[in-house]
Write a protein that binds this DNA or RNA. Structure first.
Lengths: 214, 214
DNA sequence: CAAAGGCTTAACCTTTTGGTCGAATTCCAA
DNA sequence: TTGGAATTCGACCAAAAGGTTAAGCCTTTG
């Protein structure tokens, strides 16, 4: 794979290096998503990028390190968009709508990331317990506070905020993690944009109504 | 769920043999759930049962066969209880309530089965596409018809039945598949019965209200 | 233009693991 | 008791996969 000449390259080595690393990470995310950590042969990733195994190991010294980097990328991308608090809007309805729509968007745009994450959690989250504790949970707690505030202000029904988030997380991520099953049920080779839109509308409607947000 | 013996069985299996096979299957379900197909070493299963690897292979000739049997067991157990149509009750509210509660029960009693299934779907369901097509989907279609009927009778809101099932499946199975994450959030070493009860009540309330079932 | 340093490859090594084979042992009914 | 079937075990094997090493190639830069 020859890289395009870049006239304004000031540090070509570092530039091409990051490019190579990115393509490796992308391929790795894909393969790890489908086969899980153990099911993935680093050779399969190398083939996909068009590198030899040894050469790929030059960029990432081990399978474990590569996997960690993939996981890291996924999590960072996620956490950014995953706060209810940070949604646009000044009222429960708008914010919740944006939140749900955002989560479905992630399932649509980054299904592989979601699958890697799912694999990790199912197998007991050995590698990211700490990450979850220090990053996800604090953010969630803030979101929970917001929900409680809305409840106390009578802007929604008094429901358990934690289980509400479990519901939203699972029902949105299922369009990534379980896409195979959904495609089978809907009899489509691949989910299309309209399917995700439909899912969004459905979930938004049901959850808003179900929680009494108006 | 007829336990009819295979016609091609010349002799019924001995009591001790079936007992051994059962304990192997149980251990296998456990290990496959945690590590996935590729991540599981048959030695780990054998150790757990207290057999040598070779001896275990005497009962199940290969890892693949053993895995298939585990999957088979899980699916059969599931399908039995998974029809909305077969729930007790003569009205939408009761039937839907029992359905959701039943699904949460499965997550509580058979979390490993759920995880094995989840692993399989995430990795593209290579081994059970056919099973889903011939077993799950027909049952689902019948359930979808029932929902449509309820809608046409004005007993619930006009919503998309398919996405409703996706929501119920995902939000109930998450208490098995993602239990690690949930335990972390709820700050408990292990989910207790009351947690599942709470989840049931939450989901039942939200889904009934959200779909306009009364 | 030539040294330095980044990049790539061939050959090789080690460990793990699914699986085989035949001998030994146990179980069971005649 | 005994012969045959069922079960268990020790020894071994081949393939796959992660990883190492040392040597060569290519690009940049002083």
């Amino acid at each position: 794979m020859t890289k395009a000449l870049d006239p304004k390259n000031k540090k070509p080595k570092s530039r091409s290096r990051t490019a190579t690393e990115s393509s490796i990470l992308a391929a790795a995310e894909d393969v790890f998503a489908r086969f899980g950590y153990h099911g993935t042969a680093i050779n399969a990733i190398a083939d996909k990028v068009g590198l030899s195994k040894q050469n790929m190991l030059y960029y990432f010294p081990s399978k474990e390190v590569l996997y960690q980097r993939v996981l890291e990328n996924v999590l960072n991308q996620w956490l950014e968009k995953m706060a209810l608090l940070e949604q646009e809007g000044d009222n429960p309805k708008t914010m919740m709508t944006n939140y749900i729509r955002g989560k479905i968007d992630i399932s649509r745009v980054h299904p592989n990331g979601s699958k890697v994450f799912a694999n990790e959690i199912i197998s007991g989250a050995p590698r990211l317990r700490d990450y979850l504790k220090t990053n996800l949970i604090p953010q969630l707690e803030a979101d929970v506070q917001l929900i409680k505030q809305w409840i106390s202000e009578g802007r929604m029904d008094p429901i358990d905020p934690y289980h509400l988030f479990f519901l939203i997380w699972s029902s949105t991520q299922t369009y990534a993690d379980f896409s195979t099953q959904i495609e089978l049920v809907l009899d489509k080779p691949k989910l299309e944009e309209q399917d995700y839109d439909k899912a969004s509308e459905f979930l938004i409607h049901l959850i808003l109504k179900g929680t009494g947000i108006h």
